[in-house]
Design a protein around this nucleic acid. Structure first.
Length: 499
RNA sequence: GCCCCCAUCGUCUAGUGGCCUAGGACGCCGCCCUUUCAAGGCGGUAACGCCGGUUCGAAUCCGGUUGGGGGUACCA
């Protein structure tokens, strides 16, 4: 027997941001569509809510999908379709439901329904079921839920789920103005587009019996359903736009690699087996089985995502890493004056930074000392490294040695000089390098120091050490003898600002 | 309230009656390496919610319970 090729769909509504849950859902759908030669991933933009819909939001959806590797260039991709283009079909279908007695008009207001029902637990009471109301102003169209029995949803993740018809109210399928509701429009479109497999979030599970009833009422065999577990925050609540970090775009801006994001997202509810987690999409996608997806909710763990991202970054070819960093180095966003930037210098340091960044945006803090006029002022680093007993003396010793014009300005020699300078003060290299590092880069942590100095150059290195010495002297002169912890620091900052 | 879903380390998961004194990964902790920080290497911490059944045998099957979650719109 030959199976019909799978037709899945991804049907986001434009909201101005792309939800990570939607991203996972899209990926699962995409994996399935690509497993069959004729498999199709249908993109439909559910743009009927004109009130909150902007054209650029649709573009955002397409771009986000493309970032994930889902796009128009692939033959498995179909669309995008726009729900708004099918408005006529929606209305026709609503009429048809009415004509065939599967739906009826209702003029009850919410208040009337509420007053009438004896049991506040029930929804609509079916008051207008047999009143034979004609279409007209103020009249919504309600689906006539069959009297007996349950509707059984066969879910490929959850198995058999039964909904007694007594617990499904006669739901509205079209508003009084004739416009269709999600529950109807969604089904009509799926029928129209030949969708045979619906994979979506668990929040839609309770819509499913209603939609299945609709498919049947339209004389169609319902699709194969699969409801994915919700993605939750640390408090185990569904990730919400309002309170959680859910926008794919945000992760992209921070410098998460799409490969890492895709890998991580695939693992939220599913595992390829064999104790493997880091796996490229090309290997992962063929292994994906919808029936193997977990049914319990999954916490979106950014820590683990970062770990994955770091792995992917480290695995990048050196040149690729440089290219991927570019967006954070561009003049529009970089903190340094444009003319200070030197691409050769960046290419030279990049390999040192590659194992040190978990997300690409961190590249900036790693290399900014090379392009800034002055190193950043980080008070914590300063106070930690510039202890009175060691800071000044170490800077002085370092300056003297590094100023020697005979010194060859390369890492090994620089190391030897600083080591010797430290020895003279009874400091091991670990301690000795700290004041120099802070004087030159502004921070206690960073790239390997001697390579950094080499790239910075003798002149700028010496200038920065001298500037730091000056600042130290100013602090000593200005520091109140009774000064508390915070007092010298603020004085220091004030001094630095004047410079 | 009502309908529905879910339940293995802190987290994501492996596990579909014996291979489990429960495996991997992230996190966390320790050690090594080391010019800082990373990276890397080595080691450690830590889970089958609870109560009953079924069975020679249960993380795996059944019932209950507790606890989470989703949905309850003329939103999508």
């Amino acid at each position: 027997m030959t199976e019909n090729p799978i037709r899945v769909r991804f049907a986001p509504s434009p909201t101005g941001m792309f939800h990570v849950g939607g991203a996972r859902s899209a990926l699962y759908n995409w994996a399935l569509a690509r497993q069959q030669d004729e498999g199709r991933f249908v993109l439909r933009i559910e743009d009927t809510d004109a009130a909150r819909n902007k054209p650029e939001w649709t573009e955002g959806i397409i771009q986000a999908l493309a970032w994930l590797g889902i796009g128009e260039s692939d033959p498995h991709f179909e669309g995008p379709y726009f729900q708004s283009d099918y408005a006529e079909k929606h209305r026709e279908t609503a009429e048809r439901l009415y004509d065939e007695g599967r739906a009826y008009y209702c003029d009850c207001t919410r208040e009337q329904v509420q007053e009438r029902r004896d049991n506040p637990n029930l929804g609509y009471d079916g008051f207008c079921r047999d009143r034979g109301l004609e279409p007209g102003p103020g009249r919504a169209l309600r689906f006539r839920v069959p009297e007996g029995g349950p509707t059984v949803v066969e879910d490929r993740i959850r198995g058999r789920v039964e909904f007694e018809h007594t617990s499904i109210e006669d739901f509205v399928v079209a508003r009084a103005d004739g416009s269709p509701l999600f529950v109807l429009a969604n089904v009509v479109d799926d029928v129209e587009m030949g969708v045979n497999t619906v994979i979506r979030g668990e929040e839609h599970l309770s819509n499913t019996p209603k939609q299945q009833l609709l498919w049947e009422a339209l004389g169609q065999a319902p699709p194969s359903w699969a409801h994915l577990p919700v993605i939750v925050n640390e408090k185990r609540q569904k990730l919400s736009k309002r309170r959680d970090k859910v926008a794919l775009e945000t992760y992209q801006e921070e410098g998460f690699l799409p490969e890492a994001m895709v890998n991580y997202l695939m693992l939220l509810g599913w595992a390829p087996g064999g104790d493997r987690e880091i796996m490229p999409w090309s290997e992962m996608a063929p292994l994906f089985r919808i029936s193997d997806v977990n049914s319990s909710s999954a916490f979106f763990d950014e820590k683990k995502l970062r770990a994955f991202n770091g792995e992917y970054i480290r695995a990048l070819e050196a040149d690729d890493f440089v290219e991927r960093c570019r967006p954070w180095l561009s003049p529009e966003v970089a903190p340094w004056p444009e003319e200070n930037y030197d691409d050769d210098v960046f290419r030279a340091v990049a390999p040192l930074a590659q194992s040190r960044v978990a997300v690409l945006s961190e590249i900036v803090a790693n290399v900014d000392f090379l392009f800034l006029d002055e190193p950043v002022d980080d008070p914590k680093s300063w106070s930690k490294a510039m202890k009175p007993e060691t800071g000044g003396p170490m800077l002085a010793a370092a300056r003297e040695r590094l100023a020697d014009p005979a010194l060859s300005w390369e890492p090994e020699a620089l190391r030897a000089e600083l080591e010797a300078a430290g020895e003279g003060l009874g400091l091991k290299l670990g301690k000795a390098q700290a004041p120099v590092r802070v004087a030159v880069t502004g921070r206690t942590v960073g790239l390997p120091l001697f390579e950094s100095l080499e790239l910075l150059g003798r002149e700028r290195t010496l200038l920065r050490i001298e500037a730091a010495q000056e600042r130290l002297r100013a602090e000593e002169a200005g520091a109140a003898p009774a000064g508390a912890d915070a007092a010298p620091a603020s004085t220091a900052e004030g001094t630095a600002a004047v410079e």
